[in-house]
Write a protein that binds this DNA or RNA. Structure first.
Lengths: 186, 186
DNA sequence: CGAAAGAATATTAGTGACTAACATTCTTTC
DNA sequence: GAAAGAATGTTAGTCACTAATATTCTTTCG
C-alpha cells in the first residue's frame, strides 16, 4: 500500500528518465519503460496517467493564489500578481539540482511537453485570476495579469533547465524574469 | 491540384465542425469526420495532420516579428513587443464572426486544445524574441517579453471566443489585454 | 502460525490517432 | 486522346491508453 508502491514508482520513473535521456522522449514507448522497470505496460499507466506526466506532473503551488490575494489593493493587477508570485516563490526551497533539473531539461527541449507544462498551470492561473477578481479587478484584466506572470515564470524555468552551465540559481532567474514585466518607461 | 483540393478541404472542415458542435470534440473520431465528408480516413489526415489541427491551425503570425523588429530601440523590450503585436494586429482584418469564432470557441473550451494553440505560437515567440535579441536585449529578457505578450494575446482570444454575448470586438479586447502589461504605477 | 481480506500486478483484448506502402482513380496537358 | 502527375483508397501496422478479468503478493487478525 505504500512502501512497495513508492519503490515501484521510483523504479518506473528512473527507468523512464534514463531512456528519455538516452534515446529521446519520442523514441521511447511506454512498453519500453515498463519493461526496463520490470513491470507490465498496464502498471506503468497506473502510476503515470500519460507518458508525458512522467515529466510534466509537478504539484505546483496552491500557495501562490493566497500570496496574490494578500497584496495591497492599490497596486495594479499585474503588479499584485507579480509580487504575489515572487513572495510565494521565495518560500519554496531551491529545487534539487539532480532530479528536477534533468526532468525539466527534457521537457523544455520538446515543444509538446512545454505546452503540457503550461497547461498544468491552468489551475494556478485561475486561482490567481479569481484572487484578483475578488478585489474588484475586471475579469479579462485579471486573467491577463495571471497569464503574463505565469508565462514569464514558465519561461524562466525553461531557461534555467536548458542552461547547462548553470550560471545562476533558479530563484535569481525568476526574480529577474518577473522584473521584465515592469515597464519603467520614463 | 487546387479547385478540387480546396473543395475537399472545405467539406472535411465543415463536416468536422458540425460534428464537434453536435457531439463534442472528444466524442468525434477522425473516421466519423471522414465518413461524413465522404472521404477515407487516410484522406482526412492528408488534409489535417492531426484531429486537433482542424481547430488550432491558424496561419496568424509571420508579420508580427517584423513589426516588433521595427519598434524604436529606446523602448523597453516588453513595450517593444507589445507595440509590435498591436500594430501587426491592426493590419489583420477582423475575423469573420462565423467560422473563426465557432472554431475558437470549441478549442477554448477544451484544455488540451488550448495547450495546442499555445504550442502553435512557439514559432512566433521565438521570432519575436530573436527580433529583440538582435537589437541587444538579453536572451531571458527577450523570451520573457515575447512570452508575456503572447500569453496575453492568447488570453484575449479565448475570452472573445467564449463570450457568447459578443460584447466587444476582438481587436478591442486585444488592445485592452495588451494594455494590462503596462504598469503605470506612479 | 495460518487463512482471509485487500492491494498490486499481469493478461488479454480493444479503441482511436496516426503512418507507410502500394494500388487506383481522377485531372491536366500537350 | 493518351501520358504524366495529382488526389484518393486499401490494407496493415504502431503506439498511447482503457476495460475486464484473473492472479499474485501483503497484510492483518484470530
Amino acid at each position: 500500500m505504500s512502501a512497495k508502491t513508492e519503490r515501484t514508482r521510483a523504479r518506473i520513473l528512473a527507468a523512464a528518465i534514463e531512456l528519455f535521456v538516452r534515446d529521446g522522449f519520442d523514441q521511447v514507448t511506454a512498453s519500453m519503460i515498463a519493461e526496463a522497470a520490470g513491470v507490465s505496460q498496464m502498471t506503468f499507466f497506473r502510476y503515470f496517467p500519460t507518458k508525458e506526466s512522467v515529466l510534466t506532473d509537478d504539484p505546483y503551488d496552491p500557495l501562490i493564489a493566497r500570496a496574490v490575494a494578500v497584496q495591497p489593493r492599490e497596486l495594479m493587477p499585474l503588479e499584485r500578481a507579480r509580487r504575489g508570485i515572487l513572495q510565494a516563490w521565495q518560500q519554496v526551497p531551491e529545487p534539487d539540482n539532480d532530479g528536477t533539473r534533468i526532468r525539466m531539461g527534457i521537457a523544455a527541449a520538446n515543444p509538446r511537453l512545454r505546452a503540457r507544462m503550461l497547461e498544468n498551470t491552468t489551475a494556478t492561473q485561475e486561482a490567481i485570476a479569481h484572487a484578483l477578481q475578488d478585489t474588484g479587478v475586471e475579469q479579462l484584466a485579471a486573467q491577463c495579469a495571471a497569464a503574463a506572470c505565469l508565462a514569464v515564470l514558465h519561461t524562466s524555468l525553461i531557461d534555467w533547465a536548458l542552461d547547462l552551465d548553470m550560471n545562476s540559481t533558479l530563484s535569481d532567474r525568476v526574480r529577474y524574469a518577473l522584473d521584465q514585466l515592469t515597464i519603467t518607461k520614463s
